[in-house]
C-alpha cells in the first residue's frame, strides 16, 4: 500500500510538501516567539536614559511600537518581501541584515570549510596509520580539544594574541575610516578575520577529525578495501577513492547539522571579537527588544538552515548512490 503510493507520487513532491510545511511553522514561530520576551522596546529604550516619561507618553509610545498586526498581516507583509523597519537603528531591517550577512558568511563559511577539510584529511591519514603513536597522540589531543568550548578558546586567543602580544586586532572586521586599495583591503579583512576564524576552527576541527577517523577506521575493515588491496592499486588510490570516499558521508551530515548553528555559533565568537555579523546584530536586537529586527533575523536564518538541509539532501544523492535506492 505504502509502496504503491510511493510509486505513483514523485518523491520530490513529498519533499516539497514537507519543506513547505516546515517553512510555514517557522514563519509562525518567528511571529509569536519574540513577542513572549519579557520587557519591551519602550522599557529598554528609556529605562537607561535620563528622560522620564509620563504615563500618557508611555502609553502612546507603547501603542505605537507594540501594535500587534496579527499573524495574517505579518505573513502578508512577508509575502511582499517587506521585512519592516528597525526601531532601534531607524533603518530598514533588510538593509541591516544584508550588511551583516556577508561577514557572518565569510567567518562561518571559511571556518566550516577549513575545519572540515583539515579534519577530514588528517582523520583519513591518521586512521590509515592505525595503532601508530601518531594516531594515539592525535586522538587523545583531539578528544581534549573537542571538550574546550569556543567561548574559552576565544577569550584565551583574544588575551594572548590581541591584548598581550598585539599581533592581531581585538575587534571589528575592517580598520575603520581607512582608505585602502583593493589588495590592502583584502589583507586588512584577513587580518581582522584571523582570530575569530582560528577560534572557530579550533572549536570545529577536533570533532571533524574524530568523526573522520572513526568512520575511516570502520571503512578500512570493509571487504571492498581488501579487494582494492588485492587489485594491487596504489596506496593513495585505495585510501581516497575507496576508503575516504565511503567515510565522507557522516562528515557531510555533520557539516550540515553544524550549519544549523551558523547564527548561534557566530553569536558568541562575534561578540567576543565584536565582529559585525548576524550574531552581533541579533544580540543587539534582542538587547533593544527591537521586535521587527529579531523576527526577521530569526526567520531568515532559520529559512537558510532549511535551504541548507535541502541542498544536503541533494548532495547526499550525489556522493552516496545508496541513498536514492534504499527504501
Amino acid at each position: 500500500m505504502i509502496d504503491s503510493i510511493n510509486h505513483c507520487t514523485p518523491r520530490w513532491l513529498g519533499m516539497a510538501v514537507a519543506f513547505g510545511l516546515a517553512a510555514l511553522i517557522m514563519i509562525y514561530l518567528s511571529y509569536s516567539l519574540p513577542r513572549l520576551l519579557p520587557g519591551d522596546f519602550v522599557i529598554s529604550m528609556y529605562s537607561s536614559s535620563q528622560v522620564t516619561l509620563t504615563s500618557e507618553q508611555e502609553t502612546e509610545l507603547r501603542d505605537y511600537y507594540m501594535e500587534d498586526p496579527g499573524f495574517f498581516k505579518y505573513a502578508l507583509r512577508l509575502a511582499h518581501l517587506d521585512w519592516g523597519y528597525s526601531y532601534a537603528f531607524l533603518m530598514p531591517v533588510s538593509a541591516l541584515f544584508f550588511s551583516a550577512l556577508p561577514w557572518t558568511l565569510l567567518l562561518l563559511g571559511t571556518a566550516h570549510i577549513l575545519s572540515m577539510f583539515i579534519g577530514f584529511v588528517s582523520g583519513v591519514e591518521v586512521a590509515w596509520r592505525r595503532d601508530s603513536w601518531l594516531e594515539k597522540g592525535m586522538v587523545s589531543t583531539m578528544t581534549i580539544l573537542e571538550g574546550v568550548p569556543e567561548i574559552s578558546t576565544g577569550v584565551v586567543l583574544l588575551v594572548l594574541f590581541a591584548l598581550h602580544l598585539e599581533w592581531f586586532p581585538a575587534s571589528g572586521a575592517t580598520t575603520a575610516y581607512a582608505e585602502l586599495s583593493f589588495w590592502t583591503k583584502l589583507i586588512d579583512i584577513g587580518y581582522h578575520l584571523a582570530l575569530p576564524l582560528l577560534t572557530l576552527i579550533l572549536a570545529y576541527f577536533p570533532g571533524n577529525f574524530l568523526l573522520a577517523r572513526n568512520s575511516m577506521v570502520m571503512v578500512i575493515k570493509k571487504p571492498y578495501i581488501m579487494t582494492a588491496k588485492a587489485k594491487g592499486l596504489p596506496d593513495r588510490r585505495i585510501r581516497y577513492a575507496h576508503a575516504a570516499r565511503n567515510a565522507l558521508l557522516p562528515l557531510v551530515t555533520r557539516f550540515g547539522l553544524r550549519l544549523a548553528f551558523i547564527i548561534t555559533g557566530a553569536l558568541v565568537v562575534e561578540r567576543i571579537f565584536s565582529y559585525p555579523g548576524l550574531g552581533t546584530l541579533l544580540f543587539n536586537a534582542i538587547k533593544a527588544r527591537d521586535l521587527p529586527l529579531i523576527q526577521s533575523v530569526v526567520l531568515v536564518s532559520s529559512l537558510m538552515v532549511l535551504a541548507i538541509i535541502l541542498c544536503l539532501e541533494i548532495i547526499y544523492r550525489i556522493i552516496d548512490p545508496r541513498v536514492v535506492y534504499e527504501h
Binding site: K222, P223, Y224, M226, T227, A228, K229, A230, K231, G232, L233, P234, A241, H242, R245, N246, I319, D320, P321, R322
Partner: peptide, 25 residues
C-alpha cells in the same frame, strides 16, 4: 613487488559477493 604480483599474476574472487565491491563506484 607484492603489488606488481597482485591481479597481474594472481587474482582472487572473495567470498560474500556484493560486500567486495565498493558501493559508491
Amino acid at each position: 613487488s607484492l603489488n606488481d604480483l597482485r591481479w597481474a599474476e594472481i587474482s582472487i574472487v572473495f567470498q560474500n559477493g556484493a560486500a567486495n565491491l565498493n558501493p559508491v563506484h
